[in-house]
Simulated scan of single mutants.
Amino acid sequence: MEFNNQYEYAGFWVRFGATIIDSILFLMLTMPLLYWVYGSYYFESDGFIIGGWDLLLNWVFPFIATVLFWIYRSATPGKMALKLRVVDAKTGEPLSTSKSVVRYLAYYISTIPLCLGFIWIAFSGKKQGWHDMIANTVVVRPKDHGVEAVTFESRT
């Protein structure tokens, strides 16, 4: 990926928006399946993991899907919708399998202390969360966001 000043680091709010999109898509896929398998018991239970399907649909499937999206598309569906790409911080190339796995597992490090690792994106110069720093990745977007520049006629 050539940078040639055509990309910029994606900040907190646009990444948060991508996460919301991904979360809604994920819930639309998994909730009907979990209800079909477990019925209302799933939503009433206090258990952390209810059973094998719960483990697969809420832990294994998201891991595999996210890693595959990063490897083959450099973005999850939410990031694709907002024209964001997750790339290697040094080369700008798509993530390797190992880097994708490390980044995904590092999400838990970003999450555990009150999501501070995600909030860190807002304060980092390269807009990196802790998971990005651990995996040496960045999230970028085109400088031209596709929005037309505003121009006004002069009143002379």
Rank of each mutant, 00 (worst) to 15 (best):
L34W: 14
L34H: 14
L34A: 12
L34F: 12
L34Q: 15
Y35C: 03
W36T: 02
V37P: 08
V37M: 14
Y38D: 06
G39C: 15
S40D: 14
Y41P: 00
Y41N: 14
Y41T: 12
Y41D: 15
Y42F: 11
Y42C: 03
E44F: 01
E44P: 10
S45V: 10
S45H: 09
S45E: 06
D46K: 12
D46G: 15
G47H: 10
G47A: 13
F48I: 12
I50T: 09
I50P: 04
G51C: 10
G52E: 07
W53R: 07
W53F: 13
D54N: 04
D54C: 03
L55F: 15
L55A: 13
L55P: 08
L55W: 10
L56Q: 02
L56V: 15
L57A: 10
L57K: 12
L57S: 07
N58V: 02
N58Y: 03
N58S: 09
N58E: 07
N58D: 09
W59F: 15
W59D: 04
V60G: 09
V60Q: 08
F61H: 11
F61C: 10
F63V: 08
F63N: 05
I64Y: 02
I64P: 00
A65R: 03
T66D: 04
T66N: 06
T66C: 05
T66I: 08
V67W: 07
L68P: 04
L68Y: 11
F69Y: 13
F69K: 04
F69R: 05
F69H: 01
W70E: 00
W70T: 00
W70I: 01
W70Q: 02
I71Q: 06
I71Y: 02
Y72I: 01
S74N: 06
S74R: 01
S74L: 00
A75D: 06
T76P: 01
T76N: 00
G78H: 05
G78L: 02
G78F: 08
K79R: 10
K79P: 03
K79Y: 07
M80Y: 11
A81P: 09
L82F: 05
K83A: 03
K83R: 08
K83E: 04
L84Y: 07
L84H: 07
L84N: 12
R85K: 09
R85D: 01
R85Q: 06
V86F: 13
V87W: 05
A89W: 11
K90A: 15
K90G: 07
G92K: 04
L95R: 03
L95E: 02
L95H: 10
L95G: 06
S96T: 08
S96I: 02
S96K: 03
T97K: 12
T97W: 13
S98V: 13
S98E: 14
K99H: 02
K99L: 00
K99S: 09
K99T: 05
S100R: 02
S100Y: 12
V101Y: 12
V102P: 15
V102S: 11
R103G: 06
R103N: 03
R103V: 09
Y104T: 04
Y104R: 12
L105Q: 11
L105M: 15
A106L: 11
